[in-house]
Design a protein around this nucleic acid. Structure first.
Length: 484
RNA sequence: GGCCCGGUGGUCAAGCGGUUAAGACACCGCCCUUUCACGGCGGCUUCACGAGUUCGAAUCUCGUCCGGGUCACCA
């Protein structure tokens, strides 16, 4: 049993884009730490100077904040094992690489980029040919003295196998001859991702290395590094990939061509952060009781590594939409109103109306906030519609009776003093009773005339309320005209 | 192509040698109803294939097939 305090880390590189796959990795790292009373560390991996993106680190902070993944240590909050930005740790890696060279487990490589490229061109997928692996010491020293640019490469065993254990995939064995003499330290002095990862994870006392399983085949290289330093190997937790469905029906690793795959994109499409948390938690993990609705705190209580699945999962927008609808319906109306208001304004402009009623008809129906303008467009302007809309079999509404119904409604509503939902409701129900028709027979034509579309969020009374007396009556008269 | 991983309905999935193989999304139908949505009820589709082990296999083993990942001075 592992008695160490659990420490996980999220180590994104600042690209300015938070892919849901990365976010899901962050979430699992957070959950593994939280579920075991451990710490969650944020480390920025910016060793690729060519890929530097302005403001990208802010995107990471903002996203983690929005989804509620609070970190215990990181560049912004500090911690015992800083700095937490790799570029600020640059000088720290070289001694480790040089130690490996001294121990005969790594070597200087002076091969030029051009030579490596031609190597690639020649033999398909061959990899580095270990040209500098056994350079005589004197020659190495001479090249070094001459200031020749170099990288430091890890010396892989030429034969045998390396086996490592993964918490979700079990034991995995890979033949050492498959392993390339990977670069540890680049010619610009920066460590490669793989190298910096091992050094930092060790220095930061990370106990669980959680990452997508695209790293599965490179894990032996990590292991060899830990062994070379005599360090304790962390628990590896490789996560099944998130897949996207292609046009032709096939699937592949979720990427931009599959639609919105960035956290920010999803939010812009009207998905709630808690929806995203909940949904991606279930992409590759399942609790014993198969529960589906979880707050972040509940996830932290229930998460366990043995519930992580081995097989890849297809990102399903339909299911995401369902979750979003659940969350929208579950929130209090006040919050819904504040989330919906910007969309209301797109349609209503500066006009006011009974926002409470509008919110009340939308909240049970909206699945994505972005649907709102389209759903309520008819409020802004009465669409032109054919008289046939007044016909509905189930409501017993016909071209013949719709006119009289509208006339009765106009008369009734016209003398209504207070234009409130309750009053309108009461008046129309009473009217239907007096007319001796079922509610639908009266309300169908009223709703059609008020909205000008056949399908509406909410019913006739709500729509009339929102329109306001003057506009409501005007629309009913327009409807009446169509029936003459 | 080499190596690695995976394969339960259209999708997410439970299952861990004996189950009528759960549940959710989607889809279809019915009910509720003031249209739609919500809700309720019902339906549709699944253990990739072939051997083997076993009294008994979705569960264990092997092979085949299919899918994916990976083979950078990127992370």
């Amino acid at each position: 049993m592992d008695k160490r305090v659990v420490r996980t880390r999220f180590a994104p590189s600042p690209t300015g884009f938070m892919h849901v796959g990365n976010l899901r990795t962050a979430l699992y790292e957070y959950l593994i730490a939280r579920s075991q009373g451990g710490s969650f560390v944020l480390r920025i991996e910016d060793t690729d100077q060519e890929r530097f993106v302005e403001g990208a680190v802010q995107v990471i902070y903002r996203t983690l904040g929005e989804v509620g993944l609070s970190h215990d240590e990181g560049p912004d909050v500090g911690g015992e094992y800083g700095p937490y930005v790799q570029s600020e740790r640059k000088e720290l890696y070289r001694p480790y690489a040089e130690q490996l060279v001294r121990d005969g487990k790594a070597y200087y490589c002076f091969c030029t980029k051009e030579r490596l490229e031609s190597l690639h061109a020649e033999k398909e997928g061959g990899g580095y040919d270990r040209h500098c692996r056994d350079l005589p010491a004197a020659e190495v020293q001479a090249l070094l003295d001459a200031g020749t640019p170099y990288v430091i490469r890890q010396k892989m065993p030429l034969e045998g196998c390396t086996t490592f254990h993964d918490a979700v995939y079990g034991d995995i064995t890979i033949e050492n001859k498959e392993l390339e003499d990977q670069v540890l330290l680049k010619s610009d002095g920066y460590p490669t991702y793989n190298f910096a990862n091992v050094i930092d994870d060790h220095l930061m006392h990370i106990t669980h290395v959680v990452r997508g399983c695209e790293y599965l085949t490179s894990t032996p290289k990590y292991n060899l590094l830990y062994e070379a330093f005599g360090w304790e190997v962390p628990t590896y937790v490789h996560l099944p990939l998130i897949m996207g469905k292609n046009e032709d029906g096939s699937v592949s690793k979720l990427s931009k061509r599959h639609g919105s795959t960035g956290f920010a994109d999803l939010v812009a499409e009207g998905y709630l952060p808690e929806t995203i948390d909940n949904y991606i938690a279930l992409l590759g993990w399942c609790p014993k009781d198969n529960r589906e609705l979880f707050t972040l705190a509940e996830l932290a209580e229930n998460f366990s590594i043995d519930g992580i699945s081995k097989s890849p999962a297809v990102f399903d927008y339909d299911k995401l939409r369902w979750f979003n609808g659940e969350y929208i319906r579950a929130m209090d109306q006040e919050r819904f109103l504040s989330l919906a208001m910007p969309y209301f304004r797109q349609v209503f402009g500066d006009k006011e109306c009974d926002w409470q009623v509008l919110a009340s008809i939308l909240q049970p129906r909206v699945v994505q906030l972005t649907q709102i303008p389209e759903m309520i467009g008819f409020f802004r302007e009465l669409p032109d519609y054919p008289a046939e809309f007044f016909v509905n079999k189930k409501s017993k509404a016909t071209l013949e009776n719709a006119g009289p119904m509208l006339e009765a409604a106009i008369a009734e509503l016209g003398q209504l003093g207070e234009w409130k939902l309750d009053a309108i409701h009461e008046a129309l129900i009473a009217l239907a009773g007096r007319l001796g028709v079922k509610n639908g027979t009266l309300l169908w034509p009223v709703r059609i005339a008020a909205a000008g579309v056949q399908v509406t969020p909410g019913g006739a009374m709500e729509i009339l309320t929102i329109l306001g007396k003057e506009e409501a009556l005007r629309r009913l008269r327009v409807g009446l005209e169509k029936l003459k």
